[in-house]
Design a protein around this nucleic acid. Structure first.
Lengths: 255, 255
DNA sequence: GCTTGAACCTGACGTTGCGTCAGGGTGTAG
DNA sequence: CTACACCCTGACGCAACGTCAGGTTCAAGC
């Protein structure tokens, strides 16, 4: 009866392709308790233990947690079928998430490849994208416009100190916009419109001739590029969603 | 200059959609250190902090680790492009693994659905699959053979005690096979052939008339179904890969 | 001036599945 | 008698925070 061969941890580990530590662990959490201990306390595993280990390894290759495996093996009322279906669901969800990640990464890679290697640094430094660093993209968007040439001419002269100064001003107006957004102000309300005009004035002073009517295309651009939205949202969640309609309203009323 | 608005943890957390604990954590690991502390030790974040947090969150949505994000943001020599490509690779690998998991789970589900709900329990109890529990599958394989009818007739009479007895015998011969496999014995060697014949005798005594010539189809069956292989491998890794050619050799020489 | 609630602080443990020492016992072959 | 192989029990480490616990501070209302 109990004449069958018993194995030590090392033997079972080698036979089954797991580590000794793994068996120690399974013993510690009660997932696989050795059939006996030698007088000196050594773990002794019998055939049933070996078979159970096979089951454990099988379920582990299916990605189930040790906790779930324990329930499947020990609780006769536990439905294997349901457990596997649930696991399938979880893996599918994980794959879906992974695919979304890939899309996001590809998008980011496309931006970087598109001669934008530095724009994120610039965003950090300047609180906004540095237009001089993505001429290709900007030209495709704005064409060979006067505004573009003007800002290119002006910004090429700015010193680091100028940029810091711009940064401060830009931050101030963005904070104002974020406050209004957080307070639930109407995008076409009086305060929002004033803030929008202040923003236009900022652009006008630092980049190119800009009045309220220019805020429409600007809103389009911000809406089209998450990175712009993120620089707004850095001042408070939802700011971009407030700024875009506010700029559009301002452009409308200005015409 | 330093007149700009500073936010406390709670404020920045709310604005940015993260938890206070997360900001504490980022501070603890040096990923996002607040610009200042109030006299009473409270964390004070400035706009640069907020912008950096946005960057961190952006990279986090792409699945990068905090460690990598820190390198990307702090080490100017670190190539974002390469980092993102590497991350893409990792995610693709993870998706591939997930798809393999799905296939494995579907396979397992198919087995369970195929009227096999109990076979894994049986495997645990009997050290092998209980043929009476998957008639559909077995019939499709063996057809309406005499062997099948014979084992069905016999096994239907077996008591739990009989099964335990079978279990012991089966375990003994499997261990012998595993020993030979582990020792690197030749599948067509003398000892292997004797063990194979012992196995055939076991089948003969417990299930249906079986001599060496029947081991060929048996080997085919074992090769076709991982579950059989696993019951062998429970006695030592690689046992199945030894048993299958050994059985075939035995069948050849027997003819 | 006092109390109260909200917000802040610093530890420190829990999670998942082991890997990886550290320190010490045991058994056996030469 | 001494290596050397193998066993044991802790216990820390990892990734990214979640979740108390115990104590301080702040702004506001009575």
């Amino acid at each position: 009866m109990s004449r069958m061969k018993l194995h030590t941890v090392g033997q079972l580990a080698r036979r089954s392709g797991v580590t000794v530590r793994t068996l120690h662990h399974y013993d510690a959490i009660g997932l696989l308790t050795p059939a006996a201990r030698s007088p000196n306390g050594r773990r002794l595993y019998d055939r049933d233990n070996a078979l159970r280990l096979q089951q454990i390894m099988l379920y582990r290759t299916l990605g189930l947690s040790l906790d779930e495996i324990a329930r499947i093996l020990d609780d006769p009322g536990f439905d294997r079928h349901d457990a596997l279906l649930a696991q399938r669901q979880a893996v599918v969800a994980q794959i879906t998430k992974g695919e979304a990640l890939i899309r996001g990464i590809d998008e980011a890679l496309a931006l970087i490849d598109n001669a934008l290697q530095k724009d994120m640094d610039m965003a950090t430094l300047f609180g906004g994208f540095d237009p001089s660093k993505f001429e290709d993209e900007a030209k495709a968007r704005w064409g060979d416009t006067d505004a573009w040439r003007e800002q290119a001419k002006r910004t090429s002269q700015y010193s680091a100190e100028d940029w810091r100064s711009y940064h401060t001003e830009h931050g101030a107006i963005c904070e104002r916009l974020a406050e209004l957004a957080a307070a639930g102000a109407a995008p076409d309300g009086k305060e929002a419109q004033e803030a929008a005009k202040t923003y236009a004035a900022l652009i006008d002073r630092w980049f190119y001739p800009c009045d309220a009517s220019h805020l429409g295309p600007l809103a389009d651009m911000y809406e089209a590029d998450v990175r712009f939205q993120e620089t707004f949202n850095a001042f408070g969640a939802g700011t971009a969603d407030f700024v875009i309609p506010a700029f559009r309203a301002c452009a409308q009323s200005g015409e």
